[in-house]
Design a protein around this nucleic acid. Structure first.
Lengths: 231, 231
DNA sequence: CAAAAAAGAGAGCACTGCTCTTGCTATGGA
DNA sequence: TCCATAGCAAGAGCAGTGCTCTCTTTTTTG
């Protein structure tokens, strides 16, 4: 029947699964992904390590669950920040900047989870297909902003080199058929560059270089908005 | 006296140290940083694991050595690519693009080493001060290109928000006193964004999104050059 | 109510980083 | 030249890891 109420056992399973992820997230935050230990999680939960394998068949599966949750958490943070400023009647640039700042804020608040999804992939581990939808949320949000801004008045379209035209057309067909190909290419680049800014700050490359991180980020992300044609 | 020839023992120490790093790099490339095992390195070298501790006091110290080597290897690749096109009389934009492409090529050729230095920092490990000079090489190279281009004719200077002016001035004083503060801020942002592009490609974020990676990168890195005022 | 499925407990395997002790050997001063 | 010292290798051992297997208990289901 409905998988909602299916007896105490199913209910317990959901709770235990959640408790495992919660404790794993706690250890992830304090120790980092590589030191996340199944045994320690089990120990902390008062269960024996072998019992944990009834819920996650391997350490990598637990990590995958955490990755999906992290993508969703970040996506939700970005989406709700975007909704907030949109409801307040913000212009496209402001909406873009709001999303960028939400990503940065989430990253600073959850550094190890950010590292899990945008840092180096955990060695020997390649993210399964299941993570794709969650991973796409921020990107789709950014696409939406540019598409909205494009309604009616055309964007300033970047020049494309001949060699890039077919790729830009394909990108446009996949991501935003109503946008000119050049704009889509610029958008994808800006998307990657946004996470470059966040990653550099988070992973210490800005140490002893950039001091006033927040104004600097606002400056850079605003310029990115202009790069994708937002005014 | 001179530390060059100081008997068979010192000579052996240098060779063994190099052999350890070499084997470690091999394992790093095939297994990734987290699965790099001191015992496996020792085993492969026909020595017992405890002997390895005479050369590197801990696994982290070995990783640090690999990190410095990686920064230097990347820096040298970028510098020699830059020197090549400069000798051929390339314009500033072309020099910038050449550096960007060298960084990307190095990253694709040494993905695990790139992850070591620009991916998430190894958990529980924070890079010591010794890595700083090696880490700065690519950044300094980019600064040099923009400074050269600035000689004589002034660059187009980005608008700075009030809140960023003091930071931009400080950045300029530290990095390039002869450049206008706005240009320095744009430069630092472009530096981070460059590695954002490379990281996204390398860590799989472009999978099923960008297919023609090389033209796309050329497009994006050329736009970055324009962002820092190069023509 | 009995059979079956699910969960927990515990032992055990092979591996890890790291330490400590025990010998051996090259180096440098008397 | 001799010899104490310092550097090095080897081995055992500790505490921890991921994961598997078996055995028992508990819950669900036909």
């Amino acid at each position: 029947m409905s998988s909602i109420v299916r007896g105490a056992r199913a209910r317990a399973r959901i709770e235990v699964t959640a408790a495992i992820k919660e404790e794993a997230r706690r250890q992830l935050a304090s120790e980092g992904a590589a030191r996340l230990s199944l045994r320690a999680v089990a120990r902390e939960l008062g269960m024996v390590s072998s019992a944990l394998y009834r819920y996650f068949p391997s350490r990598d599966d637990l990590l995958t669950a955490l990755i999906i949750d992290a993508y969703d958490s970040l996506g939700e943070a970005a989406e709700s920040a975007h909704a907030r400023v949109t409801d307040a009647g913000a212009a496209p640039v402001e909406r873009w900047v709001a999303v960028g700042e939400a990503v940065r804020a989430w990253a600073l608040a959850h550094p190890q989870e950010y590292a899990l999804i945008y840092g180096s992939p955990v060695p020997g581990y390649s993210a399964p297909q299941t993570t794709v939808p969650a991973a796409a949320r921020v990107g789709l949000l950014l696409i939406g902003i540019v598409r909205d801004a494009h309604q009616g008045h055309a964007l300033e379209v970047p020049l494309l080199t001949d060699e890039l035209v077919p790729e830009a057309v394909r990108l446009g067909a996949d991501l935003a058929p109503d946008l000119p190909p050049g704009a889509v290419a610029a958008l994808v680049a800006a998307w990657a560059q946004l996470f470059g800014l966040v990653g550099f700050e988070l992973f210490g490359q800005f140490n002893r270089v950039v001091e006033e991180r927040e104004p600097f980020f606002r400056f850079a992300v605003t310029r990115l908005a202009q790069e994708v044609g937002l005014r």
